[in-house]
């Protein structure tokens, strides 16, 4: 039950982030919003890191440098998300975003790109993505 509550809150927070960012963007601009929210998020995470003392700085050196830059995508993710929400609303944005996200993740998994463990594409994955695209078409109707 506790796990379900955490998972629901996690999902709600992801949407809240998008909506809040597009609201703040109207007042101060999109790049300002991205810079400000990432900075305050970073400072909060850094305080938690000091508190929980799971700082293993030397661990970063064992990771391929490319993977350390993943966070840098955030600037473009926030810009795209805010622009999409302002054009087509929250529901349609999240729906299209999830289709692209799950499709690419599966393409990467099934090809074993970036050294991830190769997974076979199965019928339920095709049906699932098909249903999601169908749902978006229904939303548009």
């Amino acid at each position: 039950m506790k796990g379900i509550i955490f998972a629901i809150l996690g999902g709600v927070f992801i949407t809240v982030q998008g909506v809040a960012n597009s609201r703040i963007s109207q007042d101060i601009g999109t790049w300002q919003t991205a810079t400000l929210t990432q900075l305050t998020g970073f400072l909060t995470a850094f305080l938690l890191l000091l508190f929980f003392r799971d700082g293993k700085w030397q661990a970063y050196r064992r990771v391929r440098p490319l993977y350390l830059t993943g966070g840098a995508f955030a600037a473009f993710i926030i810009f795209s998300n805010v622009t999409a929400i302002q054009h087509i609303g929250v529901t349609m944005t999240i729906s299209a975003l999830l289709i692209a996200q799950l499709s690419l993740t599966f393409l990467i998994d099934s090809n074993g790109w970036f050294g991830v463990k190769k997974q076979k594409m199965k019928l339920p994955h095709f049906i699932g993505i098909g249903m999601m695209i169908l749902g978006v078409l229904i939303l548009r109707a």
């Binding site: 993943g70 795209s80 622009t83 944005t93 975003l97 289709i99 993740t105 050294g115």
Partner: peptide, 19 residues
Amino acid sequence: FALLAGLLVSLQNIFNRKV
């Protein structure tokens, strides 16, 4: 832009998992 964001989120998740 919604689709672009989805592609980038997918890549970011994989990179972050590696870290």
